[in-house]
């Protein structure tokens, strides 16, 4: 299995408690380099909490998350502050409820994503204000990169429109393009297909597959849309009540009894047993 031989992300014994509530309980899994790994589970299973731990929005109660880049550098994500996870460890993410800069244009959104390289090119603002140094070229290159992504997500004709004016499906694609503009090693997508119609959902699959084919980016995604999960993912991890209940290829997971039980509920006989216990 690729994910155990060359993992880009190794999560070990991750636990996240909010007061008395255990949102994630002793979770360990690996995401393979170049794979599309899907994290699935019923509502409230703790998937987004795992994402927030990986991307530094939560500090996990226990556990270790290691990110290994292709050049051998490795980062312990639980020790890095949030912005360094994105800039140094190169983990990018999108959000379940889209978080674009709605009052800024589509192009500006993609330039904000390239903040750190541009900041260095502008001499941390000092040289940029004085107009010396190579900031103009760096900005031109950044715009070129943004244009490449806009052509890829078919939004080049809306480049100068505010991001908040875009239709929902376009906003989802723009958010993915914005995350990709940070040149991530690992791209975490939180329900990228939520609210998309079947055609848009198919386009999204194509976009994700092309990212995997053309860039050195591994993808970790949370998804409820099984057509997306089963079609494009190489590896599926299933969570229920914060605990991992299955881990394997889409075929293995599809036929796993505990997964079926978690998604469809338990058998009728067991319900009768439970009712007998409670005394209904």
């Amino acid at each position: 299995m690729r994910w155990s031989n060359d993992p880009v992300l190794t999560v070990e014994h991750l636990t996240m408690r909010f007061g008395g509530l255990v949102a994630v309980n002793d979770l360990s899994f690996q995401a393979g380099r170049g794979d599309i790994t899907a994290l699935i589970g019923p509502n409230g299973a703790g998937k987004t909490t795992v994402f927030n731990c990986i991307t530094g929005f939560y500090r996990p109660t226990e556990g270790m998350m290691t990110l290994r880049q292709a050049n051998g550098a490795s980062y312990l994500l639980e020790r890095l502050p949030g912005h360094r996870i994105a800039w140094r460890a190169k983990v990018a993410r999108t959000f379940q409820n889209i978080r674009l800069f709605s009052g800024m244009t589509v192009l500006e959104n993609l330039l904000v994503a390239q903040h750190n390289p541009l900041m260095i090119a502008s001499g941390f603002t000092v040289l940029g204000v004085l107009g010396i140094g190579g900031y103009a070229q760096a900005e031109a290159a950044a715009i070129e990169k943004a244009v490449r992504w806009l052509e890829k997500i078919k939004l080049i004709h809306r480049a100068d429109d505010p991001a908040g004016d875009l239709p929902y499906g376009d906003q989802r694609r723009l958010e993915i393009a914005r995350a990709m503009c940070t040149d991530p090693v690992l791209l975490c997508l939180d329900e990228p297909a939520a609210g998309l119609n079947p055609r848009e959902s198919k386009e999204l699959n194509e976009l994700l597959l092309s990212i995997r084919a053309e860039h050195d980016t591994s993808i970790l995604l949370i998804e409820h849309d099984m057509s997306v999960v089963m079609e494009i993912s190489d590896h599926v991890v299933v969570l229920d009540y914060g605990t991992k209940i299955a881990d394997g290829t889409p075929e293995e997971v599809r036929n796993d009894q505990s997964v079926i039980a978690a998604y469809l509920g338990v058998e009728d006989e067991e319900v009768a047993e439970v009712e007998a216990e409670v005394g209904v």
């Binding site: 978080r99 800024m104 904000v112 995350a179 940070t182």
Partner: peptide
């Protein structure tokens, strides 16, 4: 516009 999105893009807020 959005501080959380900024952090996720590596901006030191």
């Amino acid at each position: 516009e959005d501080e959380i999105a900024c952090r996720s893009l590596g901006i030191n807020t």
